[in-house]
Design a protein around this nucleic acid. Structure first.
Lengths: 194, 194
DNA sequence: TGATTTTGTTGACATTTATCAACAGCTAAG
DNA sequence: CTTAGCTGTTGATAAATGTCAACAAAATCA
């Protein structure tokens, strides 16, 4: 079990990204509960409803889908300081087509859908903040679509290497490959070709 | 010149997707101005700042990027009843990497970034509605990412044919191909292979 | 620690898709 | 009507990427 040792990252992030008072930050932080996870633990299973939004204190979560042959494809990687879940399921509270899993060990906080609605009432400015979170996530997904439709695997690899060098140190290669939309063999060859 | 003949689609859409009063719907509709367009007119040029959000009354807009060799890639297609623009530029009010263009003839309304902020003040519920628009756009972009990383061109083609059969009747094949992330030759072959 | 599973690399080959070129059909303009 | 341009199709070929298999290295667990 990896127990959260601290919940400071969320508070820090709120201070940086919003102008919420310390009191309100405390309210928000209190609404997110530390959730102990095991190595590679699955947080949302395909077919479940995503009931929680997860804030990553440390490590990574991956959101992935599987095809008929059981191949996995990583839709998103959520790194420390970011939050996410199987989003389409979370906002609609309907069955998820994707799964969410810890990559190795991760420390996360979570807030339920219902608690989040209550938080909007308690801290109205939080709703605007949430909108910003969505906007940012949307912008980064647009960026992702662009690279997927306009670049070949080598260009995507080099771009990610430039934008997220840490990922290559901290994440297993097959996860990176799934994220890039290529096989682990192709990624391995791109690395050695440099 | 294609002059908007009606602005009913926006009002209709607002009635369906929100519980705004008729008075407030009128306010919102009044804030969107008809913008006459020419055949294939470019609304946002790469390098510009996207100053307007466009609502499509009729026809289609395409949001596309170009690579170094001048190849074009369609990031999004905005159909009648939807709104959009070069979104990352619009929300940040920074230079756009993408262009927005009418596909053939289109009838559009537009609202400036500043007007939109004013509209939030005048009609507070509109802000929540806007958040929903973003959420939906985000969800559809997630869907797009999934298909791009997990399906080959034939699977993507068949899925689009199923989800958006009208597009194949109303849009030129090269635009569809760009949207699917394949060449027009490959699309042509997929069609004939069936 | 040693055993076992996971992860990463490499090779041979197959498949998918892009590129380049030629051409037919259609449309718009003079 | 005729020409020029645009759109879509088809063929030949090349390039990119996936698949399958074998193996090496590393991490995990009992």
């Amino acid at each position: 079990m990896t127990k959260p040792t601290t919940i400071s990252v969320l508070a820090e992030t709120l201070r940086k990204q919003s102008s919420l008072s310390e009191k309100k930050i405390a309210k928000v932080v209190a609404a997110y509960k530390p959730f102990p996870t095991k190595h590679n633990q699955v947080l949302v299973r395909k077919g479940d409803i995503a009931k929680y939004l997860y804030f990553v204190e440390k490590g990574y979560l991956r959101v992935f889908v599987t095809d008929a042959s059981g191949n996995q494809f990583t839709r998103f990687l959520i790194e420390g300081g970011m939050e996410g879940t199987a989003f389409p399921s979370f906002i609609s509270q309907k069955i998820s087509s994707a799964s969410v899993q810890c990559v190795g060990k991760a420390e996360v906080l979570r807030i339920s859908y219902d608690e989040l609605q209550k938080l909007y009432q308690a801290v109205p400015e939080f709703e605007r903040l949430y909108r910003k979170v969505i906007e940012m996530a949307y912008v980064s997904s647009i960026h992702r679509i662009e690279t997927l439709i306009s670049m070949n695997s080598r260009e995507r690899y080099l771009q990610l290497l430039k934008e997220k060098p840490k990922w290559f140190q901290q994440l297993p290669a097959n996860v990176i490959a799934e994220y890039l939309g290529i096989t682990k063999e192709t990624l391995s060859r791109l690395k050695s070709a440099k």
